[in-house]
C-alpha cells in the first residue's frame, strides 16, 4: 500500500509491503519514514496540539501539545479530558501541565511563556 509520510514536511511517498519477514518500506528519504510506516500500518500514532483554558482574562487559552505521540484513536478521549484542565498559573513553554495523560505515557506541555499579554 501507499502512504504519505507525515513525520516532516517532506511528505515522502512511501510504498509499504507486508511480507512474512515483516513490513518492507521504500520511498523514504530518511529512516524515520520506516518507523512511521510500520507504526501507521500496525498502530497509528499522532501528536496532538490544542489549547487549555486558563484563569487569566488577558490570556484565555494557552497552547499545549503532547510531548510525544499518542495512539490516534485516543485523540477524542484526550481532547475530552483536556476540557477539564485549567492553567491556573503562568506556565513557561515546556512546562508539563498534565503528566502521563490518560496513561498514554505522554505528557501535555505548555508551548508558550504565559507571562505575556494575551
Amino acid at each position: 500500500m501507499r502512504l504519505v509520510c507525515i513525520v516532516c514536511p517532506n511528505s515522502c511517498l512511501l510504498e509499504v509491503e507486508k511480507t512474512d519477514a515483516g513490513v518492507k518500506v521504500t520511498g523514504n528519504k530518511c529512516k524515520r519514514g520506516i518507523t512511521f510506516a510500520i507504526e501507521e500500518v500496525t498502530a497509528p500514532k499522532r501528536s496532538l496540539t490544542t489549547t487549555v483554558r486558563t484563569v487569566f482574562e488577558n490570556f484565555p487559552v494557552a497552547p499545549v501539545r503532547t510531548n510525544g505521540e499518542i495512539p490516534k484513536e485516543k485523540i477524542p478521549a484526550v481532547m475530552a479530558y483536556l476540557k477539564t484542565v485549567v492553567a491556573d498559573k503562568r506556565y513557561k513553554a515546556g512546562d508539563v501541565i498534565c503528566g502521563n495523560v490518560l496513561d498514554t505515557g505522554v505528557d501535555i506541555i505548555i508551548t508558550i511563556d504565559m507571562d505575556q499579554e494575551g
Binding site: C8, P9, S47, T49, T50, T51, P63, V64, R65, A93, G94, T111, I112, D113
Partner: peptide, 21 residues
C-alpha cells in the same frame, strides 16, 4: 499552535508558539 515547526532547524517538531519562543 500546531506542530511541525523547526524540523530542519532544531530537528524537533515544535509548535509555532514554541518555535517563536
Amino acid at each position: 499552535i500546531h506542530d511541525g515547526f523547526g524540523v530542519i532547524r532544531f530537528g524537533e517538531k515544535l509548535s509555532g508558539c514554541e518555535y517563536a519562543q
